[in-house]
Design a binder for these strands. Structure first.
Length: 355
DNA sequence: TAAGCGTGGGG
DNA sequence: TCCCCAAGCTT
């Protein structure tokens, strides 16, 4: 196992990518990068990480900002609870830890959004603690090295113990990152380059001749499809948006009012009903502007947008849950991708307000 | 334990 | 086009 560690590390140093967060061992930077990298590929994260550090050079600046600014920086990255939890953690550290990130495993892992993987990874890098960070890559590599197939909690625990015995004691952080780079470039889930792998000699899956059979694939459930209808309501040169509940799907982001159509309901009736329920005013959908499609983690939607005329006078009040904004102000608010697709439709129509 | 959570890219 | 995948965490 010691030999594996050496071979993996030399492969890493030869093929190491220069990533922005690899220029420092500051726990703030490392922690942020690990949160952004959850379920997200490196090339996607890089621009978000750079923009974030430019806006929030220190954790204190995250704590002193409001959630809207944080979500704006997270806009488009997905899994928005990561951003909300990171902001929440920043406040906890500022208020309860004098602004110092607590670097004991139990304290750090107790922060919102920090799980076993993130805690192990951060501590292995910033404190050189010999902790394997069992992410999807390292897990997959372990299954193949040891020739395990069934993804049971028992097998995963076995792997963790095995890796923790063999992890480099001098460079645990590099060892973790090395295995992850190996997993994301050589030992991928559906494609392997065993001829380039520094440890194929001791790999049971490689020896078997069909490495992709390890671990065995678990079948995924089909995701449902929903039809959603939303309304565009003008008042002078501004239109209406509202904020989603902070703890739900796309929590804290802004959107057009509307929602799912129910059985035997027309899109127009849906827009009327949802706006009556959510906004407490009456509108009349006049004309369909267009429809976009979007796929989320666990369902997909077709979303239509309707020009709506107010039936009654709508009070123009702006608060934390509702705003009247001009098209040019879109960039000040965080919107989900589906809304940006609708904005794109509207741009192509020059934001024509005539119904 | 298993479902829920975004988005972009690859085959 | 469709399906799967990607440095997980929370409930």
């Amino acid at each position: 196992m010691k030999i594996i560690s050496q071979q993996v590390l030399s492969w890493y140093y030869e093929n190491k990518r220069d990533l922005p967060w690899r220029t420092t061992n500051d726990p703030y930077n490392i922690w942020l990068s690990e949160i952004m990298l959850q379920q997200t590929q490196v090339d996607t994260v890089i621009p978000y990480y750079n923009k974030w550090i430019e806006k929030f050079p220190t954790l204190r600046q995250v704590a002193n900002s409001n959630l809207d600014d944080v979500l704006k920086m997270w806009e488009g990255l997905g899994y928005y609870s990561r951003g909300r939890n990171f902001h929440k953690s920043a406040l906890i550290i500022e208020n309860q830890h004098n602004g110092i990130i607590p670097l004991t495993y139990d304290e750090f892992k107790s922060l919102p959004g920090v799980g076993a993987y993130t805690a192990n990874m951060v501590l292995s890098i910033v404190s050189k603690e010999p902790r394997i960070a069992m992410d999807g890559n390292i897990r997959r590599i372990g299954f193949r090295l040891l020739g395990l197939k069934r993804q049971t909690p028992y097998n995963i625990k076995r792997l963790e113990l095995w890796f923790n015995k063999g992890i480099s004691k001098n460079r645990p952080g590099d060892f973790n990152q090395a295995l992850m780079d190996l997993g994301s470039s050589i030992c991928k889930a559906k494609m392997v380059r065993c001829d380039q792998c520094p440890i194929s000699k001791i790999c049971v899956a490689f020896a078997s001749g069909s490495p992709l059979d390890y671990p065995c694939i678990t079948k995924k459930k089909k995701t449902p499809h929903y039809t959603v209808a939303t309304g565009l309501i003008w008042q002078e040169d501004s239109f209406y948006i509202q904020k989603r509940a902070e703890n739900g799907h796309l929590g804290g982001l802004w959107e057009f009012p509307g929602g799912k159509i129910e059985k035997n309901e027309s899109e127009i009736d849906t827009v009327k009903r949802k706006i009556r329920e959510e906004c407490q005013f009456e509108i009349n959908p006049e004309k369909k502007i267009g429809t976009i499609k979007h796929v989320y983690s666990h369902f997909s939607i077709s979303m239509s947008l309707y020009h709506c005329l107010p039936i009654e006078d709508i009070p123009v009040k702006n608060n934390g849950q509702m705003r009247w904004i001009k098209p040019a102000e879109i960039s000040k608010y965080a919107f989900p991708k589906a809304n940006h697709k609708l904005f794109h439709l509207l741009k192509n129509q020059n934001w024509n307000r005539n119904v």
